[in-house]
């Protein structure tokens, strides 16, 4: 397991909402703890297991592989994208980039955002849901076109966290 994979794992655990994840693989043992009400920061304890130790049971390794494979950040797995945070849709609805048709967009590529800034509106059944940012950073990509339908958990923005 290289540093990149560990980073991805940390991000995944932080996003999943789990408070603690322990993983044991052939040569490595990882414990990731997230604070209860923090903003996605994760504490990681990486522990090198002595080489002499007998390999651990297979299921743990399989589980770990799956976790890494389903890491939500950077589906293309390009090295560039993996440092970005994906902002996803919390609901099904229609994605709007503007508060109303005659107004400017909330954010565009290059916009600097801070926690609490409104990124978009997702309309569902005439309920207009303003989506606020949980993080500060810079918008790298807008992944959905204005006024198009979005699914639950669909990636909306790529953000370079600051």
């Amino acid at each position: 397991m290289d540093i990149k994979e560990i980073q991805n794992l940390i991000k995944f655990v932080a996003k999943s909402g789990a408070s603690e994840v322990k993983l044991e693989m052939d040569d490595i043992k990882i414990t990731i703890k997230t604070g209860s009400d923090d903003k996605g920061e994760a504490t990681t304890i990486v522990q090198q297991i002595p080489m002499a130790q007998t390999p651990v049971a297979q299921p743990a390794a399989v589980a770990a592989a799956e976790v890494v494979a389903s890491t939500p950040v950077a589906p293309a797995a390009s090295n560039e994208d993996s440092k970005y945070v994906t902002i996803k849709s919390p609901i099904i609805g229609t994605f709007y980039r503007k508060p109303s048709p005659d107004k400017p967009v909330f954010v565009e590529v290059g916009s600097t955002i801070k926690e609490g800034d409104v990124l978009c509106v997702i309309e569902a059944m005439k309920l207009f849901n303003e989506i606020e940012s949980e993080i500060s950073g810079k918008i790298v990509k807008v992944l959905v076109d204005d006024a198009s339908p979005v699914e639950f958990d669909q990636p909306l923005f790529l953000v370079d966290p600051s």
Binding site: L127, F128, N129, E130, E132
Partner: peptide, 23 residues
């Protein structure tokens, strides 16, 4: 979904805007 009618005429309308943060 949320118009209020009397007979078949609209007499009241509703516009709801929610704020969502951290899902």
């Amino acid at each position: 979904p949320n118009d209020i009618l009397s007979e078949n005429k609209k007499i009241a309308g509703i516009l709801i805007e929610n704020v969502i943060k951290q899902n």
